[in-house]
Write a protein that binds this DNA or RNA. Structure first.
Lengths: 281, 281
DNA sequence: CAGTGGTCTAGACCACTGG
DNA sequence: CAGTGGTCTAGACCACTGC
């Protein structure tokens, strides 16, 4: 901000980029030139960044759902009354965050866990022999799914309070018939109301795809803490390994839009036939 | 490629973006309009991508060294006879690959492992208590460093032949006095001629920083395969844990420019006080 | 204050997709 | 062929850094 010619797009944070089509436009007032100037620079945010946030809001609101296309760059430019280049930069960032996927000649699409080529978007386990997915689809076995109360650490991970209602599930993933992963999953009960073991078992596809389509809860990012632990607590039987066998323990917190944590998952991976792959830049 | 008006920048892959300042300019010939046209589209590469490659070559050649600044966007635009915007997009990609770092108002700098805030650019181990690096600097202890011959798997990882000369080293990293990591490192002998245990021990800073400054061998990318294994083979003593304790085994191949593998490293991490952190998008 | 990277625009044209 | 994303340019101005 700071005083500057009214012609430029930087003039005021609220004015030029809000088109009539934007539902928030009515709630804003044109600043009387001096008013906002004192607010000064700490609040500076480039136009494309503001556009990005507006698009983000539409994604969150479900205006465009996973797998669908969003309006063309030209349409968005008209809608927000900015140049195509500015919309472009906003979408570039969204694509960089893997929230949307661009496809030349076709359009820009909301990212989804359901697409074939991203079947295991959040699963970095790769077979020793052959590339990811070369073993065919995973076999999913639901061991259990029941309502529960959040312990202190589960509550902290999910941004709940101790004792809040959660869903707790356990499943086994097998590849080529070999049980390879046991996962314990915790979900806040409210957003996933109606989810049962039956329903998990009958859904054919990645669990995150089910979260999208059945509960309107896309997972867009995740953090993992990885440790080596000894197989115990019944997991050795599910994975058919000796008690004490070293396993990879992958604790994942998955987030939906706005960085809201929506799932805690502790996976135990056998690493005698697979490895966890990571790339460092 | 493909026939098109000479005015556009796409006309010929060799012509317009090569400035007189480019050392390769003299070795090229102006195509006689028809010659290259049959090569056709599969070879299509946007201008900014070609500029990116030219900048990459200068980085590889050492024209600009890690930590130094590269010429300004305007200078590069003049040098390559393209618009600033095209140079900008080229640099954007290089910055996205973490090969360079942009700093507004100062310039664009070649990435380095020596900078304070990236002390552990390739080390994703985080203490359970507190953020990365909160334990102060790592204590590095060189256990061994000797010449050796590449075994089959080491050769494969480094793109050598079995029996080729390699340097093999082992060291321990301790944090807050606790031995936390044992690493076995293999390097091709030729590029690291003159590296000894003594020299490794006396260098104060990340090993990758030493590779940059002492051997002109910047590591720009790495792949990791992570497994859980039982402590054995003398590593339990170095880490002061019981034999059989689960450890994270991190096998890393680090690459220099051109995706040339230059280091194989097998790290064994204690994960009772630390965890390996990863972010998924 | 000059120099650097960062933002924004307007317009032209290219590559790719599908009807 | 029209529509979409992708590339390129030229020019203006802004934000940040350091002299």
């Amino acid at each position: 901000m700071i005083a500057m010619a009214a012609k430029t797009a930087f003039t005021a944070p609220s004015a030029p980029h809000i088109a009539a089509a934007d539902p928030l436009a009515a709630s804003r007032t044109s600043p009387s030139s001096v008013a906002e100037i004192t607010a000064a620079s700490p609040a500076f945010s480039p136009l494309y960044s503001q556009i990005k946030n507006l698009i983000l809001k539409s994604l969150q609101s479900g205006e465009w759902k996973p797998g669908e296309s969003i309006p063309s760059e030209m349409d968005l430019a008209t809608r927000y009354r900015v140049s195509q280049g500015t919309v472009r930069k906003a979408i570039d960032e969204l694509a960089g965050d893997n929230l949307v996927v661009r496809r030349q000649g076709k359009g820009t699409f909301v990212a989804t866990h359901a697409a074939q080529h991203v079947q295991f978007r959040f699963l970095k386990l790769v077979p020793d022999n052959g590339p990811p997915g070369s073993e065919g689809p995973a076999q999913r076995t639901i061991i259990d799914c029941h309502k529960s109360r959040a312990s202190a650490d589960v509550a902290r991970a999910l941004g709940l309070r101790s004792g809040d209602a959660v869903l707790q599930a356990r499943r086994v993933l097998s590849f080529a018939g070999i049980p390879t992963i046991v996962e314990d999953i915790w979900l806040p009960a409210a957003p996933f109301k109606g989810l049962t073991a039956q329903r998990m078992a009958s859904y054919d596809g990645p669990m995150y795809a089910m979260f999208e389509s059945e509960f309107n809860m896309p997972m867009v990012r995740a953090d993992e803490k990885i440790r080596a632990v000894a197989a115990n607590d019944g997991r050795e039987q599910l994975l058919k390994v000796e008690q004490g066998t070293p396993l990879l323990c992958v604790e994942r917190i998955a987030y939906t839009y706005q960085n809201v944590p929506m799932e805690l998952r502790r996976g135990y991976y056998r690493t005698d036939t697979h490895y966890y792959h990571n790339t460092l830049n």
